[in-house]
Design a protein around this nucleic acid. Structure first.
Lengths: 190, 190
DNA sequence: TGTACATCAGTGAACGCGCGTTCACTGATGTAC
DNA sequence: TGTACATCAGTGAACGCGCGTTCACTGATGTAC
């Protein structure tokens, strides 16, 4: 407890989010507690609830931020003229670079699914993803709906297995390259 | 607390496992506690630890059982002459029919990964899966290693998304049929 | 058929802990006049 | 330039809770003789 700590933190909301992502990276959502985050931020234990309402509110904010980051990344890839393989690699790269966001995003039981900001972000990400995945279907003359689902399942599974650490080491350390390597082998090279 | 309850439960180990799977199905691994399981089994709160050592020991038993069940199912499918699509459908079906096992199996941070029985079961499942997945690669003239990884990523991702409940409803209720439907669209029909 | 004894399963009290949430409060900030 | 006041951020004490683990114990079972 330093004496010179100011009464107002400055950006406690951001700091709590940052600390929460750090904790989730280290020990998963199970190890997350508001009191611990308060401690890490050097603030009284009741302060975090001030910004997020409750614990689920904090996780809602993380999920919403995650969907926004994913949507941004997908938009960026497509604006750069990326094909399906680039979009898929972006999905996997997002999961690997933001494992805490990724974990929370796909555990809707943990957060307030009805939150408006969350729903908007989630919808945008779903739209971008679907369009990106459908480009594969178009290129390879698949049924677009089934093709998009299949491609999503592949990149989602690849990302999940990568994060779990069960993929063989010959895939290397670069998730983008590994994704494209495996995907091209599987889908051929349309 | 019924008066006629016998001192010895009979098969408390099995009963605790059963209750644990039930709880995980309902509220995930986060909601799991040894005391709650003891309550459900109508037994004193310290009894479960007698059989599993500690909480991680219980989850180790669940993971081991899961890998064994998966390996059995894969063996069965291949003995019946199933092709890659059947094997993939079996993987997804296993995840959907045993969601609690599936969840625990791929969260190695929750259990004692060094346990001998677990390692044996896990190895057997990995071997069976790899062979099943590699049949696709053989049939479609892919690189076998990459093909196996890609096929695994697809079925794992499909299973995960199915369990999360984010797949569109037009896929229907039958995970086997849906898996094969989507997979055939994607891979062509070798 | 009976008895001694080892073994194992389950008990219940106790420990110390960290948690989420509530609530009346105080300190700081900024805006209206 | 100064002052009153509303607003917001953060405090700290308190609540009640459920948890995992330990430990000396007791009840039941089965085996050796």
């Amino acid at each position: 407890v330093s004496e010179d700590r100011p009464y107002h933190h400055g950006d406690l909301r951001r700091e709590v989010l940052r600390a929460a992502l750090e904790v989730i990276d280290e020990s998963g959502t199970a190890g997350l507690s508001l009191r611990d985050l308060a401690r890490r931020a050097g603030v009284s234990h009741a302060a975090p609830a001030h910004h997020f309402g409750d614990k689920a509110g904090l996780l809602t904010a993380i999920a919403a931020e995650g969907f926004d980051l994913l949507a941004d990344a997908l938009v960026d890839t497509r604006h750069k003229g990326g094909d399906f393989y680039d979009v898929g690699a972006t999905y996997v790269q997002f999961a690997v670079h933001h494992p805490a966001h990724f974990e929370v995003m796909f555990r809707p039981d943990l957060y307030h699914s009805t939150d408006a900001a969350l729903a908007a972000a989630s919808d945008r990400a779903a739209r971008e993803l679907h369009e990106g995945m459908a480009t594969l279907a178009a290129a390879a003359d698949f049924d677009p709906e089934r093709g998009a689902i299949a491609a999503w399942a592949f990149v989602h599974g690849f990302a999940t297995l990568w994060l779990t650490g069960v993929l063989p080491s010959w895939l290397g350390n670069d998730p983008r390259a590994a994704t494209q390597d495996v995907a091209r082998t599987l889908f051929g090279n349309p």
